[in-house]
Every structure is written in structure tokens, then in C-alpha cells.
């Protein structure tokens, strides 16, 4: 996760339970669409990742609806449209390193998922 910005910038999104483990949800934050993923689940502590919801390959806001997994040790989400993989940590596309989606700071605070756009 990124360095925490000033406390005032954190925005509440949803309860952790609103995200099914190992899937994502889309959030609308000041007009920006953010895909937030919950990875881990039953045995490991949940890790949260936030990247842009806009898929640069299909020009559609769908990234949150991709399948989460890992490729070569890198946590990724696969775009549901044309299946390119984006790193959950860096937003970089594994198939084409020139293409990336933005990343956002995200944290869990008292059971509430927060992002700092």
C-alpha cells in the first residue's frame, strides 16, 4: 500500500463485508471510477488494492469485474473484456508494459474500506 496521505483525504467507500473475498467492486469517488479488490480471505489477512476501473483496451469501466489471481508471483486482475492482466500493485499491464491504469491508496479502518484518490 502507498504511503498514507493526510488523514483528511481518506474517503469511506464501503464495509469490508461488502466485498466478496478475492473479487472487486467499483466505487465512484469525485467522478472517478476506482476498482477496489479484496485479496486473501479465510486464512490470510485481507489485503486491499485500488486501481482505475477504466479498461484502456476496451474503453469500458469494467476492471472491478475481472478475475483476481497471480501470474509469475504478481497479483493481477484480468480484464473481463479482452483478458489483459493488470498488476494490482502497480497498475501496469503484463501484456504491454506501456499501458497501465492508475493506482490509488486504500486502507481498512475499523472495518470500513477507505481510499485516498
Amino acid at each position: 500500500m502507498k504511503t498514507s496521505p493526510a488523514a483528511a483525504q481518506w474517503i469511506d467507500i464501503c464495509a469490508l463485508d461488502d466485498i466478496v473475498p478475492d473479487t472487486g467492486v467499483a466505487a465512484l469517488v469525485n467522478g472517478v471510477q476506482i476498482a477496489i479488490f479484496r485479496v486473501g480471505g479465510s486464512d490470510a489477512p485481507d489485503a486491499l488494492y485500488a486501481i482505475g476501473n477504466f479498461d484502456p483496451f476496451s474503453d469500458a469501466n469494467v476492471i472491478a469485474r475481472g478475475i483476481v489471481g497471480d501470474l509469475g508471483g504478481e497479483l493481477v486482475v484480468a480484464s473481463p473484456v479482452y483478458k489483459q492482466h493488470f498488476s494490482l500493485k502497480t497498475g501496469i499491464c503484463l501484456e504491454d508494459a506501456e499501458v497501465s491504469v492508475p493506482t490509488y491508496a486504500v486502507r481498512l479502518c475499523d472495518g470500513i474500506v477507505q481510499v485516498a484518490p
Partner: peptide, 13 residues
């Protein structure tokens, strides 16, 4: 839900 935190629709659609 289109957005977990809002009842807006996707403005890009």
C-alpha cells in the same frame, strides 16, 4: 451494483 458507494449509473455508458 454498478457502484458500491453510489446509486449513480456509469456515465461512460
Amino acid at each position: 451494483r454498478t457502484f458500491v458507494n453510489s446509486n449513480e449509473v456509469d456515465p461512460n455508458v
